[in-house]
Every structure is written in C-alpha cells, then in structure tokens.
Design a protein around this nucleic acid. Structure first.
Lengths: 225, 225
DNA sequence: AATTGACTGGAACGTCGTTCCATGAAAGTT
DNA sequence: AACTTTCATGGAACGACGTTCCAGTCAATT
C-alpha cells in the first residue's frame, strides 16, 4: 500500500525488514509472551537485527502497537459480512471483537489510545452505521452508538487487564475462580452483593455475558423509538 | 487503622513519612502533572527524602497506584448517600464516578487492574446492591450489573486515555474539537457515519452523554421485568 | 568507477522501578 | 548511664527499557 510509488523492490537480505514483518513479529510476541515481553530488544532478536534498524520502519513503540492493533481489528471487521439484519450484524461485530480480544488481549488496552486511528474508526463506523439502518432516530443515534462502544471498550479493557494479571497460560476459568475465591472470603455484611454473586462469577460464561450486555443495551435503544 | 496495635507513635521527623502522606503526594503529582510524571524520584523529591525510603511504606508502584485509587473512590462512594430511590441512586453513583474520574483521569486506568481491590469492590457492591433493591430478577441480576459496570469502566478508561494524550492543560472541548476535525477530514464514502457524527462530537456534552448511556442500559434492564 | 541514498545493527544515553546498605534516631534492656 | 535492638531513612547502584546516534553496507544511478 505504501510502496505503490516504488516501481520495484530488490531485497538486500533474503528476509528484508519491512513494517509488515515487524508488525507480524510484534503480534507473535504479544500473543505468546504478553504485553510486557514486547521490547525493541526482544523484537530485534526475533528478527535477527538491531533495535535501531526497527526505527527505520516504525516511528516508535506507540506507532508499532497502533499498527498491530489496526492489523488485528481490520481482519475482524472484514470477516464480518454486512448484509445481515442490522441487529444481528451488530451482535456479530461485537462478538467478533470479543473473540479477537480474547485471542489478543493486548488489543483491548490499545483501543483506548488515539481514537482517530484506523482500528477505532472502523469499529465506530461499523456499529454506528448499523444503528442508523436499524432506524434509531437521529437525535438518539450518537448517544446510542456511544453507549454500545463504551460498553465494548469496557469489556475489552477488562480482558486486557486480566491477561496482564495472569501468571501466563492460566485460562480464564482459573482466573475467575481465583477472583471468586477472594470475593467469597469478603465480609457478607459489608459486601452482600459481591459475596452473593461470587459463586455466579466462578461459573459464568464471559462470552455469553458480554452478548447479554449487548442485548441489554440494544433493548434500551429499542425503547426510544 | 494498621497502627491499632501500636500504643503510641512518637515521630522521628517533624514530617514523618507514612503511607497516607505518600499517597497524598502521589495524588497531587498525578493530578497536576499527569500519570507519566509519577516516578519514585519525583515523589522522593516532593517528600524531601530518598526513593528507597518510600519502599518502607509501600510495596511497589502498583501498590501505590492502587492505594491512591482506593483513596479517591472511597471519597466518592461515601459522598453518595444511599436512601434515594434506587434508580436515582445508581445515576448518582455513576455521576459521582464520572466526576471523580474527570478530576483524576488516572483513576480510570487503574480501575481495570486487580478487581479484588477495595475500589472496584465498592463500585460493584454499590451498583449491584441498588439493582437488587430495584427489583431486577435474580436471573438477570449478574448480567445487568456487569453491563452497567463495563459501560462505566469503558467511559472511565476512555477519559484516562484522553488525558494521557492531552498536551497538558488542554481542556476537553479543545481535545474533542481536535478529534472532530480529524474525523471531518475523513472520506465520507468510506466512513459515512463517523463523518456525519463528527460535528456532533465537537459540540456534545460528555457528561450528559455518559448519563444518557446509563439511562439507556437502565431502560434495557427495565424491559426484562 | 564513483557517488548516492536506502537500510542495517550495535553502541551509547538518559530514565525508570527496584534493591541494597551504611547510617541514624528512638525504644527497650541491663 | 551504657548497651542493644528495632524502626526508619536516603542515597548509591543495578538491570532493563525506549530511543538516538552513527559508522558501516550494498544496490542503483551517474
């Protein structure tokens, strides 16, 4: 895309560096070793080069993370076909995002930064556009889209934070169990609700609950009409 | 609270260090200079001590940030009186949180970490308990509370991220204006919704929109009954 | 053949969180 | 009063990070 102006590109190394290859390697590190493992040194080691060379293709770490996020989100958004009924389409987009962030938790943290980057724009457009064709009145459109997006962002951020806490390779059930145990040990007099809901926390399905939240908000939007 | 077992506490310095004083100083730095300005060196300088001394009272930076967050959230939660009608009480809690995070944006980022810490527990208990007295059926209680909390978290995280991007002392209107300008410059064919909503973004009231989202979710919860 | 400019990679800089430890002051003990 | 112990301090040092710098390399152009 960027190299359209270049007529041809003779490689100097068999495995020449490029922003694409760097982003790809960064995603591999992020997925397998976690957010904290992505350093320019680790990246350089994996690409068999020096950390300085990476800066020729990437402005800085923030730029690299944004590019990686755009990459993942773009795949999600193109995967969701758009000819479905708008309500179902919104659910599909939301679930696609949930699954992508489940597979790449670091994306959840990145979505908050720089709302003019491609990733966030695509999400806003996809959800907002669908709300429009759903027939949400003009006056409520912006608020409705905002509510849906902020909810999705909240879940995304929480998944990212959970992944950061995990001792690595712990699965979601084990993590939820650990939190549930702590909640159970709380004083029922001081935290009656938390205490009561702790057992549900241990057994609940994150993905189903996420979708239930989407439906709740869609139901709320439905009351406006 | 911790020093209950100690009979008396003679100070060795007129301004002896304590976790309270450290947290207080940390909050001042976070509020006035931003998240990135909180370092143990800056903190030590402000407290006229060495960075090592701080570690006698605080385990590490994560512990310090969590303590600061607990401090801010506790003030919010005690400020909200509880005898109001549950629906109004939830709106009051949510608005209290919004205003607190508006004043201390770094709190928004911290709420995601360690969901067993006091800050998050108090929020869950406050919102969940109110939903219960509102009469939300048992089966939908957990999902409803989750939806509200994730929405609040999403807005909190976004405000924190915005504050991080701000060149300092820029106000919200200027920031929104900057984002709106970028959105306006997008290709209307590719991003029709974003392009159309850009002008609304510039003029909208963040706080009112946040409350509209809360009402939307509450309306959705109302459809369950 | 010489020159240019895209690209490389490793050394070096400054800053961070954290650890270590030599020092001191108060409290407790004899 | 002299001592030991405990609590607390603060500055130096360590290792890791993002980033900058620059001397070098190689294909393409002149």
């Amino acid at each position: 895309m960027v190299m359209a102006s270049r007529t041809q590109r003779t490689e100097r190394r068999a495995d020449a560096l490029s922003k694409e290859r760097i982003v790809e390697a960064a995603i591999e590190i992020l997925d397998t070793e976690g957010e904290s493992a992505l350093t320019f040194r680790a990246l350089a080691a994996r690409l068999a080069t020096g950390s300085g060379a990476i800066y020729w293709h990437v402005a800085n770490k923030s730029d690299l993370l944004a590019a990686a996020t755009d990459d993942v989100i773009a795949r999600v958004m193109t995967g969701v076909v758009g000819d479905a009924e708008p309500r179902q389409a919104i659910r599909a987009v939301a679930l696609g995002l949930f699954d992508a962030i489940d597979a790449h938790p670091w994306v959840g943290a990145q979505l908050f930064r720089e709302p003019w980057r491609s990733a966030m724009l695509q999400i806003v457009e996809s959800v907002g556009g669908r709300l429009q064709t759903l027939g949400v009145p003009e006056s409520a459109l912006f608020d409705s889209a905002s509510a849906l997006l902020n909810y999705i962002l909240g879940v995304a951020g929480r998944n990212a934070a959970n992944a950061r806490l995990l001792p690595r390779e712990t699965d979601r059930a084990a993590f939820l169990g650990a939190v549930a145990t702590r909640w159970t040990q709380l004083d029922p007099a001081e935290y009656p609700f938390v205490h009561r809901v702790a057992t549900e926390l241990r057994e609940h399905d994150d993905r189903a609950q996420f979708l239930a939240g989407i439906d709740l908000i869609l139901a709320g939007i439905g009351t406006i009409r």
